[in-house]
Design a protein around this nucleic acid. Structure first.
Length: 202
DNA sequence: GAGTAGATCGGCT
DNA sequence: GCCGATCTACTCG
């Protein structure tokens, strides 16, 4: 399948991109091992005005620098000293937006992902941002990698979802972000078994 | 099943 | 020196 093109990532509205990333295929290839999964849960982080974003108030540091570049690149950072969280940088240059990939539905390389996670095939394999990072062998040094021309990580086009299949709820773990914490910028595929958290009715 | 401590370290104040 | 866009194991019931 062809990769998503640069025009997909360069758009200004990060919440639209976060929605449209649902159902797309996230692929990594490390040491000749291809692993992939359908994106089932995302969160949008809208740069300067979003208190939950690392780039809030245009905070520009070595770590956040990649978000100030054009969309279509990887932003991977270490969280709690343990977990590598993978984000897609979006928007034109100097608009530091990003989409956190929170969960995937495994498609290729299941044995490889199970070995990396030391888990059998279950929701525990890739249902959470830290778990996605481990299953796909994403690391902080992948930050800056091009999703358009890179050979380590990219996203392949899949058929778009219907709006009715998408659920919008508040983001997870951003209580410190005051009024921004309530914004419904976590998007997931309704009824999908691989979305993180407890299963809820509806 | 629910609640919570512990892991573990780079980035920033 | 503090703490986080988290996850797991262990406790108690």
């Amino acid at each position: 399948m062809p990769r998503l093109p640069s025009e997909f990532y360069l758009r200004e509205e990060v919440t639209v991109i976060a929605r449209e990333l649902l159902g797309q295929l996230l692929v990594t290839e490390k040491e000749g091992k291809r692993t992939s999964g359908l994106i089932v849960e995302t969160e949008a982080y809208r740069g300067p005005e979003d208190k939950a974003s690392h780039a809030y108030n245009n905070r520009r540091t070595p770590r956040t620098e990649v978000m100030f570049g054009p969309g279509g690149h990887a932003y991977v950072y270490l969280c709690y000293g343990i977990h590598h969280l993978f984000n897609v940088v979006t928007g034109p240059a100097d608009r530091p937006h990003a989409v956190l990939i929170r969960a995937i539905e495994p498609v290729e390389g299941l044995e490889i992902m199970m070995a990396r996670r030391n888990r059998t095939l279950s929701k525990q394999l890739t249902s959470g941002p830290g778990l996605v990072g481990e299953a796909l062998a994403l690391r902080a040094h992948d930050t800056g990698a091009s999703l358009l021309s890179g050979e380590m990580v990219w996203i392949e086009r899949q058929p778009p979802l219907l709006d009715a299949a998408i659920l919008a709820t508040p983001r997870i773990g951003v209580d410190y972000a005051e009024e921004c914490a309530a914004w419904p910028w976590r998007f997931s595929i309704r009824q999908n078994e691989w979305v993180s958290g407890k299963k809820i009715a509806g």
